[in-house]
Amino acid sequence: MAITREEVLHVAKLARLELSGDEVERLTLELGAILEAVGKVAELDLDDVPPTSHPLELVNAWREDEPYDSLGLDAVFANAPQREDDLFRVPPTT
């Protein structure tokens, strides 16, 4: 299972990773090899097998609708890269 350079670039866009040129080359090779190995799962005919998304068969885990104290602004912004008043500032979303 090979992956093309274009696919790598497309996936990098989806994943929001700005990859440098040689990273693209290296990842194309590495991902190709890994996909070849993991593609093994396709060998099994599992049409009648249900998927498992969770190791325990739990259902209906919920909580009551009762508020707790929120963090407080000092804690909210303690690690903020950029704060403007009481808002998180980011570059323009264009």
Partner: peptide, 8 residues
Amino acid sequence: AEHSLVDF
């Protein structure tokens, strides 16, 4: 816009 501000 020059920047954006987020209120969560």
